[in-house]
């Protein structure tokens, strides 16, 4: 077996807050392979951005990795010094497109100058090489190469987002972490951005960790996905296996909550409440208070990932005490279309 591009292994991340220690990511494990788009979904506050920042070594100052390991091509990133990570991995190996990043491009600096700055911090490429590469990256994301000399404000929202992707591609990383890259865009622009991202993946074999709250996007773009709820991994596996037979009540509800243009009259599943904030160290299922089939066990014992019953995939895991029950009832849930 080859080493996966990215391994998240039993990762727990906490923040110090006035209300106590907040567990934002709790014992999460999954792998992203080269040449795949891996989807990480969950409602706001479920810990998606925290996970991304942990990978990239950019946690907010009150946050820290409590336990677990993050490995990139087998190298434990969690034990590298920040300095070494920044020099050897950031941008050249792992590029990060932070949430809302199209608004964080420096408005006073031309895009090509921003690219040059990144390249000079991380490589010894000449200015001419950088310029050439950046123009090619612009072309790859469907922007006119000549426009590298413009300022961010001359671009529309979708163009800025594509410029961000071009920046991420600049040093030809093997992994791109894209945090909600299309959430602020309209559907046409979103579709255009994904077309470019997918073309780039096919051409270069880059692996993408796609973070989004939009399960529809994940169902279309990704081969595998992980579902987070209040920092816990609810379910992970191939999108088809999860779609055919969701083994966690949260995943099942999420799947039903999305409007489908093919069936505008369908009732939408309603998810009451929000993911709770875990400030007591956890030790229970974070979905228990919202779960229709929770028992006393769910409120007192944290579930561990189990192989999903009768799933065609051995990488399909669910973290639910009641998944066997759910599965019995849900045998025929596959929506017939």
């Amino acid at each position: 077996m080859t080493t996966p591009l990215l391994e998240i292994d039993d990762l727990t991340v906490t923040y110090r807050t006035d209300a106590g220690e907040l567990t934002a990511v709790s014992d999460v494990s999954f792998c992203v392979e080269a040449n795949e788009i891996f989807g990480l979904v969950g409602e706001s506050g479920s810990g998606k951005s925290t996970l991304a920042k942990a990978i990239i070594g950019c946690l907010d100052r009150n946050g820290r990795i409590d336990s677990g390991e993050i490995r990139y091509c087998g190298t434990a990133l969690t034990s590298l010094s920040e300095e070494r990570f920044r020099r050897e991995f950031r941008w050249n190996e792992i590029a990060w497109i932070p949430q809302g990043s199209m608004n964080s491009l420096d408005p006073l600096e031309r895009l090509c100058d921003q690219a040059l700055e990144i390249a000079q911090t991380h490589t010894d490429h000449s200015a001419a090489t950088v310029d050439d590469r950046f123009r090619r990256a612009f072309d790859a994301v469907g922007l006119q190469p000549d426009r590298v000399t413009e300022y961010p404000h001359q671009f529309s929202g979708g163009m800025k987002q594509r410029a961000m992707i071009a920046l991420a591609l600049l040093l030809e990383p093997s992994l791109i972490i894209a945090d909600e890259p299309t959430t602020a865009l309209d559907v046409i622009m979103q579709d255009q951005v994904f077309r470019y991202l997918d073309e780039i993946r096919q051409r270069t074999g880059v692996g993408v960790l796609l973070i989004t709250h939009d399960l529809s996007v994940v169902m279309e773009e990704c081969a595998n996905l992980a579902v987070l709820h209040s920092g816990q991994l609810a379910e992970v596996g191939p999108v088809t296996a999860i779609y055919d037979a969701p083994h966690h009540p949260y995943t099942r509800k999420l799947l039903g909550a999305f409007p489908d243009v093919r069936d505008p009259d369908a009732e939408l599943e309603v998810l009451e409440g929000h993911p709770p904030k875990i400030t007591d160290g956890g030790g229970y299922c974070t979905f228990a208070t919202r779960c229709p089939i929770a028992t006393a066990e769910c409120e007192t014992v944290a579930p561990t990932p189990q192989q999903a019953l009768e799933s065609p995939s051995q990488y399909h895991l669910t973290t639910c005490h009641r998944s066997d029950r759910l599965f019995e009832h849900g045998r025929s849930v596959r929506r017939s279309r």
Partner: peptide, 19 residues
């Protein structure tokens, strides 16, 4: 252009370019 919450759906991407 609307993504469909179904991995088996074969949607063609939008042919529209620009804004």
């Amino acid at each position: 252009a609307v993504p469909i919450p179904d991995p088996y759906a074969e949607r063609e991407r939008t042919a529209l370019v620009g804004t």
